[in-house]
Amino acid sequence: MATLHAPVGEDAPLAPQPSAAPRRRGARDLLRMIATYTILIFLALLVLVPFIWMISSSLKRNNEVFTVPIQWIPEEFQWSNFVEIWDRIPMHTYLRNSAFLATVITFLQVLTGSFAAYGFAKVRFPGRDALFLGYVATVAIPWQAYMVPQYIMMQNAQLTNTHLSIILIQAFGAFGVFLMRQYYMSIPDELVEAARIDGLSEYGIYWRIILPLSKPALASLALLTFVNTWNDYMGPFIYLTSNELWTVQLGLRSFVGQYDAEYAMIMTGAVLSVLPVVLVFLLGQRYFIRGIATTGLKG
């Protein structure tokens, strides 16, 4: 799979390692390579152990999850867990709600973020930079510091316990503006200038020149926002009280609360809650990692 290779700095120079040695010193190199891969595989397994345990448990019977010694491969694969869970909890509803929220929020964030970033990066007007600093400064304020007033406002607008409340509090973050501006700054102003002379309006320049050039950044922003929204717990937890509005995260958490001894079924739910994001991540991880490296900020 092409996307799995070298997500960061594909063409960048190497750090301390000596570069590929000639074949003649083959034996030593081979040993060194085996050592390197052994260490890397060990590290990878160490990091991935919880996932392996999660998947393995999701395919067991309840009483087989905690055994001494640990049984990494189930004796008999209980695929039925993945069928049964749909009847146990309204997984359809949860998945649909999560997908709906993540899609709408991502769309709005990318749209308004990329639009505003053009104003900050390519249009000059008094007060612009001060305003941008204000945006950046709020990124450093923890959400917890203002979540209560935000909640009061939503309550007064009678928006608590609606999907709209989640959309509103997450779609207009400074993060998208910040990421897109960073990218636009690398697009030469001459290009914009030339388009202005050709008579294109600022909106035309944004739509026909800047956006097509910014596809990688747009993809980064979209992926980061999607995954962050999908995985978000606090927002939905505070605002959504009706079961039929819940996201996968809330549904899974409540399932754990109710049936805390149904280990296998809980792990099945965990696998299902992670699966969509893993797919999104594997498809677009190049953009993902580039987005983090350019902004260094969490959404």
Partner: peptide, 14 residues
């Protein structure tokens, strides 16, 4: 690298 990054994209609840 993907393996090392994997935990970060996993949902908190899971």
């Amino acid at each position: 690298r993907t393996a090392a990054f994997f935990p970060y994209i996993t949902s908190l609840v899971a």
